[in-house]
C-alpha cells in the first residue's frame, strides 16, 4: 500500500487509536496507590537525585538558575522520550494476542503507548509551570518555540519507537538492549550538563544526536528564556522528521509478517 493509503487507513481507525490510548492511560496506574502522581514522581525523583549528586556533591552549577530547575527542564522532555520508547517498542509484542486475531493498522499500538506517555508529559508539565512561579523564573516570548520543538520531539519518538517495535517482533533482543540503549542515550543528551559545558571539539558529535538539540532548545526557550541555537535546532527538527518517515516505512514493510512470526 502507498503512504497515502496507509495514512487514510490510519485516519479510518482514529477512534481505535483514541480507545487504545484511553486504555493505556487507565491500565498504567491500575492497582497503584499513587495513581497519576507517578507521572510527576518519575521525573521529580530523577531531578532530586541529580540535584543532590550533581548540584550538591559535585557542584555542577549553571549560571542563573537553580540546579533543580535546570535538571527538570531537560528531564521533562527526556522522561517523555524514554517512557514512550520503552512502552512503544514493546507494544506490538505485548499485544500479540491481538496481532494474531484482529486486523487493524498495527502502528496504532506504538502510537497509543506514545500518546499515553504524552499524557504523562502534560501532567508533569503542569509541575514545570509551577516551578516557574516557585523559583521566580521569568517567562519570555521564546517559549513559542515549543510549538515546533514538541512536535519534533513527538516525531522523533514515534520514528524510533516504530523501528524498535518492528524489530522486537522479529528479534526479542530489543527488550534487553533497550535499557542499555536508554542509559547511553540519556548520557549523550544534555540533561545533567549543558551543551556549553562540552569541550568545543566534541560538541558537534554530541549534537549529531537529534534529541540533543531538542532537549537543549527546550531548556533554552523555557527556563533560560533565550532563543535556541538555530543550527542545531534546525538539524534536530529535520532529522526527527526524517526518522519518523523512515521508521513508518520500515514498520509498514515488516508489518505483514507480524502475525506469522510473533
Amino acid at each position: 500500500m502507498t503512504l497515502t493509503g496507509n495514512l487514510s487507513e490510519l485516519v479510518k481507525f482514529r477512534e481505535l487509536l483514541l480507545a487504545f490510548t484511553d486504555k493505556e492511560i487507565k491500565i498504567r496506574y491500575k492497582q497503584t496507590l499513587l495513581g497519576f502522581l507517578w507521572a510527576i514522581l518519575q521525573p521529580a525523583a530523577l531531578t532530586l537525585i541529580f540535584s543532590i549528586v550533581f548540584g550538591v556533591f559535585l557542584k555542577v552549577s549553571f549560571s542563573t538558575i537553580p540546579y533543580p530547575v535546570f535538571a527538570y527542564s531537560a528531564l521533562l522532555p527526556w522522561s517523555f522520550l524514554s517512557s514512550a520508547l520503552s512502552f512503544g517498542s514493546l507494544s506490538v509484542v505485548n499485544n500479540s494476542s491481538l496481532v494474531t486475531k484482529v486486523y487493524f493498522p498495527r502502528e496504532i499500538m506504538p502510537l497509543s503507548s506514545i500518546a499515553a506517555a504524552f499524557f504523562d508529559f502534560i501532567v508533569a508539565g503542569l509541575i514545570f509551570i509551577l516551578m516557574f512561579f516557585i523559583f521566580k523564573v521569568p517567562i519570555g516570548a521564546n517559549i513559542a518555540y515549543l510549538l515546533i520543538i514538541i512536535p519534533s520531539l513527538l516525531a522523533l519518538t514515534i520514528g524510533i519507537s516504530l523501528i524498535l517495535a518492528a524489530i522486537n517482533v522479529l528479534y526479542r533482543d530489543v527488550r534487553f538492549v533497550l535499557p542499555i540503549f536508554l542509559q547511553v542515550f540519556m548520557y549523550l543528551t544534555p540533561i545533567i550538563y549543558s551543551v556549553e559545558q562540552i569541550p568545543q571539539k566534541y560538541r558537534v558529535y554530541v549534537l549529531l544526536n537529534p534529541a540533543a538539540g531538542l532537549v537543549e532548545s527546550f531548556r533554552d526557550v523555557t527556563v533560560l528564556n533565550r532563543s535556541p541555537q538555530m543550527v542545531p535546532l534546525a538539524y534536530s527538527i529535520a532529522m526527527s522528521f526524517v526518522i519518523l518517515i523512515l521508521g513508518y516505512a520500515y514498520f509498514k514493510k515488516k508489518e505483514k509478517v507480524f502475525a506469522d512470526v510473533i
Binding site: F13, E15, L16, L18, A19, F20, D22, K23, K26, I27, K30, Q31, S97, L98, T100, K101, V102, F104
Partner: peptide, 26 residues
Amino acid sequence: LGAGLHHELTGKENIYLYGAILGMSK
C-alpha cells in the same frame, strides 16, 4: 474468545474497547 479484551478493565470499558477494535465508532 477474549482477544482484545483487557483483564484490568471493567466490562463496560471493555465493550467500548472491543467495539473500537472491531471498527465501531464510539
